[in-house]
Design a protein around this nucleic acid. Structure first.
Length: 451
RNA sequence: GCACGGAUGCCCGAGCGGCCUAAGGGAAGCGCCUGCAAAGCGUUGAUUCGCGGGUUCAAAUCCCGCUCCGUGCUCCA
C-alpha cells in the first residue's frame, strides 16, 4: 500500500483505507473566474497521476473534484464585465475543461458545483447554529473558532499565533467574537446573487462548500483530502474546523503539493507563455508539463521555466523515438519483478521521480538491446516502459501519417543510397528537411518523422 | 514579525547517517555507429552538496548559528 505524507500528523504514513480496495479522494478544485495558471496545472497533474497510479495498482478510486462557482472573485468579475455570475462561471469552467483535456487529465468521477449544494450548506450552518458552534451577526453567520478543538492543527500553529501573524488584517469584524472567526453564510447586499435561507437572503461564506460536497459524495471518514499547499491555511484548516464543530468525521489523510516557482530571473516578459496553463499547452508538448511534474517530487517546489519545459519536451522526444523504434516488435507483457520494483519505489510517498527514473533506464536498456539485435529483451523493456507511462498518464505520441509524396521521396533516397549516389540522396534529404520531415536511415530502409 | 518549506554539477532535480568518489532528465565535449547525418549506444563533467561551527568511527544527510529565496498569515479594511 502507498504511503503518503500526511499534513495533519506531519509524517509519511500508509494511506489507510476506510474500505479495503477502495480509495475516496477529494481534490479542492478551481474557482472559475479566470484562466487556469501553472499552479492549477501542478495540483491537477499531481492528483491525476496519483489517481491513475492508484487505479493501476488495482484500487477502485472514487475521485471528486469540485468547481467553485460562487465566490467574491466571480461576483467582482461579473460586475466588472456587466455580466452575471453564472455566465462568468460557465465561461471559465469551459476553459478549465478544455485545458484539462489538453493536459490529458481524466475527468473526475464527480464534479460537484457549489451552487448545487446551497441547500446542504444551509443545513450545515443550521446544525452549527443549533449546537452553538456558530453565531449570528448583522452581516452573516460566523464559525466560533475558539470553540473548535485544536484549531490550527493543520496549519501547525496555535490560534494565537495565527491571529498575531495576521497583524492589522485580523481586525475584529463588527460583531465578531474572535479575530479568527470566519463567515459561513453572508447576508447579501442588494446587488449580489442570493439564496433564501432561514436567516434571510444570503450566499455561502467560506470553505463550507467543500465540507458539504466531500461529505455528501464520499461520506464521513473519507480517505484522502488533497490540494495545493496554499490551501493548507485557511481553506483546509477551516474546512476541518467546520467538520469538527459539526461533529463529523472528516478526511483521514491530508495531502498537499508544493508550490510552483518561476525562476529568479524576471519572467514577466515570458510570463504570458508560462503562467497561463492553456497557453502552455499550446507552446509546448502538453505532456511536457506532466513529465516535468513527475520528475519533481510533489512536495518540493518546482521550477517552471522555458528551460525546464524544453528539457522535458526533449526527454519526451527520446521516449517517442524509442517507441517508434519498437513499432515492429512483438508485444509481450511486462516483467513482474520489474513492476514490483517500480511499485515499491513509487509507493514511498508517491515517488514519481524514482518511477520516471526507472522509465528512462528502460528506454536506455531497450535501445541498447535493439542496437545489439536482442529484440526479445527490447520488447520486454518496451512493455515495462509502457506500464509506467500508463500508470502516470503519459502516452507515446502517435506515429506520423506519411503522405505518399513524402514516402516517394524516401524510397527514391533509399535507392540512391543503395546506388551510392550520395549527391542525389543528400539532395533528397535537404528537400525533406525543407518540407519539415526528418529522415532516419537504417540498413536498407528509412523512416521519416515530422520535425 | 510568526509559521512552514527550499538552497546539491552549466540548468532542472533525486538522495535525508555508512550502499554517495551523489540517481534521473536537459545542455556540452569525446568515442562508437553512419558515405555524411539523424536516431542510438558508450564515455567525460560536483573529491563535492548555501556559509560558519559542532556531534559521530562515519554527515549532502543529525545539532547550533548565519545568509539568501519561496509560500501562508482569510472575511473586514
Amino acid at each position: 500500500m502507498i504511503s503518503l505524507f500526511d499534513t495533519l500528523s506531519s509524517t509519511v504514513k500508509p494511506l489507510e483505507l476506510r474500505e479495503p480496495g477502495k480509495v475516496s479522494v477529494y481534490v479542492c478544485g478551481p474557482t472559475v473566474y479566470d484562466a487556469p495558471h501553472i499552479g492549477h496545472g501542478r495540483f491537477v497533474l499531481v492528483y491525476d497521476a496519483l489517481r491513475r497510479y492508484l487505479t493501476w495498482c488495482g484500487l477502485e478510486v472514487d475521485f471528486v473534484s469540485n468547481i467553485t462557482d460562487i465566490d467574491d472573485k466571480i461576483i467582482n468579475r461579473a460586475q466588472a464585465e456587466d455580466s452575471d455570475i453564472f455566465a462568468v462561471a460557465k465561461e471559465w469552467e469551459a476553459v478549465w475543461w478544455k485545458t484539462m483535456d489538453r493536459l490529458n487529465v481524466k475527468r473526475p468521477d464527480h464534479t460537484p458545483h457549489a451552487t448545487e449544494y446551497v441547500a446542504e450548506m444551509i443545513e450545515l450552518v443550521q446544525e452549527l447554529l443549533d449546537s452553538e458552534g456558530a453565531y449570528l451577526t448583522d452581516d452573516g453567520i460566523y464559525l466560533s473558532v475558539a470553540d473548535v478543538e485544536r484549531y490550527g492543527e493543520l496549519a501547525n500553529q496555535s490560534i494565537e499565533e495565527l491571529v498575531e501573524g495576521a497583524g492589522d488584517r485580523a481586525v475584529v469584524g463588527v460583531q465578531k467574537q474572535h479575530p479568527a472567526d470566519f463567515v459561513l453564510w453572508k447576508f447579501s447586499k442588494p446587488s449580489e446573487p442570493s439564496w433564501p435561507s432561514p436567516w434571510g437572503e444570503g450566499r455561502p461564506g467560506w470553505h463550507t462548500e467543500c465540507v458539504v460536497m466531500s461529505l455528501d459524495i464520499l461520506g464521513e471518514g473519507f480517505d484522502l483530502h488533497t490540494g495545493g499547499l496554499d490551501l493548507r491555511f485557511p481553506h483546509h484548516e477551516n474546512e476541518l474546523a467546520q467538520a469538527k464543530a459539526a461533529g463529523k468525521e472528516f478526511a483521514t489523510h491530508w495531502m498537499h503539493n508544493g508550490f510552483v516557482e518561476m525562476g529568479g530571473e524576471k519572467m514577466s516578459k515570458s510570463i504570458g507563455n508560462t503562467l497561463n496553463l492553456l497557453e502552455l499547452t499550446e507552446k509546448y508538448d502538453p505532456r511536457a508539463y506532466r513529465l516535468l511534474i513527475l520528475q519533481t517530487h510533489y512536495r518540493s517546489p518546482i521550477e517552471v521555466t522555458d528551460d525546464t519545459l524544453n528539457a522535458a519536451s526533449t526527454a519526451l522526444e527520446r521516449l517517442d523515438a524509442f517507441v517508434r523504434r519498437c513499432a515492429d516488435l512483438e508485444k509481450v507483457s511486462a516483467d513482474d519483478q520489474f513492476m514490483d520494483l517500480f511499485r515499491s519505489a513509487v509507493d514511498n510517498d508517491f515517488d514519481t521521480v524514482a518511477g520516471t527514473e526507472l522509465a528512462f533506464n528502460e528506454i536506455r536498456s531497450g535501445n541498447a538491446a535493439i542496437d545489439s539485435s536482442n529484440l526479445e529483451a527490447a520488447a520486454l523493456h518496451l512493455a515495462n516502459l509502457s506500464e509506467i507511462m500508463n500508470a502516470f498518464g503519459i502516452d507515446a505520441s502517435e506515429l506520423d501519417e506519411v503522405p505518399s509524396e513524402i514516402q516517394a521521396l524516401v524510397e527514391k533516397r533509399v535507392q540512391a543510397r543503395a546506388d551510392k549516389d550520395f549527391i542525389t540522396s543528400d539532395a533528397i534529404r535537404d528537400q525533406l528537411t525543407e518540407l519539415g520531415w526528418i529522415i532516419e536511415d537504417s540498413d536498407g530502409t528509412a523512416k521519416v518523422r515530422r520535425m
